[in-house]
């Protein structure tokens, strides 16, 4: 009897497959959340084509490009951290997670300067300068702030996830034979990357 008890204690119920599936279902709610905003964007861009083109000239393509590269690279390092964990190379896995967090900060610092420059030019929701512009431009910048803002919020949440993961690795709760939480955090991070893949051409590359 004690032998089966012992076995039961060590065989903690775990369903990595179900866990990943749950994460994917959550990601689909994220798709609908951002999808709604993309639909609003699509309709207003259709209605105000000229004004969207004009407003987009205000954005700095270089900053957008640097942020695209930062997110693509961080996505790669996040995916690689899983490979490292699978191979039992915990130190390398942790290092790759730190690199991912580092790129997230590159992204956020860039965003800070970008928004800062816009705000100092008087372009922010509800500002006098912005409200004096035509309707299409007001809509463009409204969507710009809401969509990139919501996206950056996801970047911050992703960083918190990864810090949590690093803590759990230290505690031994994530190891080379149980790393589904790392996988799910990486999935979340890739979603952040996916959304940016669409935000970048839609806001920065209208010429």
């Amino acid at each position: 009897m004690s032998a089966t008890d012992h076995a039961a204690v060590h065989h903690v119920h775990r369903d990595d497959y179900g866990s990943r599936m749950g994460m994917w279902l959550f990601l689909f709610t994220e798709l609908i959340l951002f999808g709604g905003l993309f639909i609003i964007y699509a309709v207003y861009r259709f209605v105000h084509q000229q004004e969207f083109h004009l407003a987009a000239q205000e954005l700095n393509t270089t900053i957008g490009l640097i942020n695209t590269i930062a997110l693509l690279t961080s996505s790669m390092t996040a995916a690689m951290s899983i490979t490292a964990m699978q191979k039992g190379n915990v130190r390398f896995s942790k290092a790759l997670i730190w690199v991912t967090i580092g790129f997230a900060f590159v992204f956020m610092v860039n965003k800070y300067f970008e928004w800062g420059a816009k705000i100092s030019h008087g372009i922010y929701p509800g500002s006098k300068d912005l409200l004096a512009k035509p309707e299409g431009e007001i809509l463009y910048f409204g969507l710009y702030y809401v969509m990139t803002g919501l996206h950056t919020l996801h970047v911050i949440i992703g960083v918190i996830f990864f810090l949590f993961i690093l803590r759990q690795i230290k505690q031994g709760k994530i190891a080379s034979d149980r790393y589904v939480r790392l996988e799910n955090s990486a999935l979340y991070w890739h979603l952040v990357d996916l959304i940016w893949i669409f935000l970048f051409p839609l806001f920065y590359l209208i010429h």
Binding site: A78, A79, A186, H190
Partner: peptide, 11 residues
């Protein structure tokens, strides 16, 4: 790009 991220990065 999304197709590649979904298939390879997201497995």
């Amino acid at each position: 790009k999304s197709w590649y991220v979904l298939n390879y990065f997201m497995h």
